[in-house]
Design a protein around this nucleic acid. Structure first.
Lengths: 237, 237
DNA sequence: TTCAATAAACTGAGCGCTCACTTATGAGCG
DNA sequence: CGCTCATAAGTGAGCGCTCAGTTTATTGAA
């Protein structure tokens, strides 16, 4: 871990003093990984210090307290967010390519580095005050952008007219939930395929489903009393 | 906190003795709520004791340790799981009704009581050993059941032939992610509609998308270099 | 080039407090 | 009675956090 340090070990202590800014970044990096793995409550400042290779005291030199460090992490993520969907013109209309790419990116990014997703979930579950900002800057930005795009395509008559935000949530839900489950349960999760293939399938399902056409299956609208089916056992004890 | 206890405070202790089993259940109930709200690491045994109205020591009379209590909770949830999709015959084929109901139930159950979903997420994120069982008994059971149903319908030619598990994950993803986001962010989440309506919309999208038909939009398959679109900014820092 | 003086990075020891968990000793019902 | 239910009062360990003091890098007069 620490180079070719062997027997001597006296002058070669190899303990590097970093400039304040570098050290701060190092601690922040280590904290990102720790908080993503164990959450806020499950991470100790001692552990953070050990992971950064410094003493506990350094943590509190750079950050007011543990919560302040967490806040700094979220700030950093928010600051790096950019328009995730830079005005993909709603006229060209190669919907398939755009959606496939969006789905593949979502799945791919989460697969390559689940850190952000885990931080997002932990912050929401643990009720951190910045959780909402986190959501706004990243998740909602994507949702709204996609909704805007879909809405534009609907207005042009290319897609069925449904509430665009809900449609966007449906598509993002497919890809997002797929990625989420893979992150949470890894290989134990059945139905994992190469991400491009999944993206293609989700896109195909979604586009087939939402593309304007007289196809729409006959609207059976029976009262549906006592029907068998996926029962209510999904969430209640 | 302890009633009208004033000077005397001797005979009127009002401390009820419960039978062991009742007390155990009471503690378990309180623990479910606490763990669902704050996770395992974020919940203290003092807090559990206070919520159950007993002393801390009682917790350890009924459960070997904090982890054992958590285990008991998960065991209970797993024990209550049943076949969520009791062989909905794949021949009748009122797909719309069955799926709508499934989606509405998923959304409704989570909405009415987010406890289970939060426990599930916390246990997965915190890496609890029983997390996998939890998943198996509840989430995968539903996924597999739906996949089985869809697979049956595909074999009958009623639906397009795609990997059934992935199709199931797509549908569950729509409803599940919708419910998840609503739980995590509540009213801040845009695009919330009455659950029946959302269920109807998701089902319609999905069925339109997956129903066997020659509809399938023309397969544009350009290389897609440098295309604008939802970019990769979804998950990486 | 040398080297004390200064500034900055850094740490070990330990503070007060809370954690999960234990023990001694009742209180109340059969 | 006797036996179970219950608690008050602990225990050592570990928490977030602080601070006196040490170690290193940088400076600038000689």
């Amino acid at each position: 871990m620490s180079g070719p340090g062997v027997a001597v070990a006296v002058t070669m202590t190899a303990r590097r003093r970093l400039k304040s800014e570098d050290r701060r970044r190092q601690i922040l990096d280590a904290a990102v990984s720790a908080f993503a793995r164990h959450g806020f409550a499950g991470t100790t400042t001692r552990e953070l210090a050990r992971a950064s290779g410094v003493s506990q005291a350094m943590i509190f030199r750079f950050f007011p307290d543990k919560a302040g460090l967490y806040r700094a992490i979220i700030d950093r993520y928010i600051a790096r967010a950019a328009d995730p969907f830079p005005a993909a013109s709603t006229r060209g209309g190669d919907d398939r390519r755009i959606l496939e790419r969006a789905a593949a990116d979502m799945i791919g990014n989460v697969e390559e580095d689940p850190t952000f997703l885990r931080l997002l979930l932990f912050s929401a579950l643990e009720g951190h005050e910045l959780s909402r900002l986190f959501l706004e800057a990243r998740v909602l930005a994507v949702t709204r952008a996609l909704a805007r795009y879909l809405g534009g395509r609907m207005r042009r008559g290319a897609l069925r007219s449904v509430p665009p935000i809900v449609a966007a949530r449906a598509f993002i839900g497919m890809a997002g939930n797929y990625a989420l489950m893979n992150v949470l349960y890894g290989p134990a999760m059945p139905g994992r395929l190469p991400r491009r293939r999944v993206a293609r399938l989700f896109t195909s399902l979604f586009l087939n489903g939402i593309t304007a056409a007289e196809a729409a299956a006959p609207r059976v609208r029976r009262p549906a009393i006592g029907a068998p089916g996926l029962d209510r056992r999904m969430a209640s004890p």
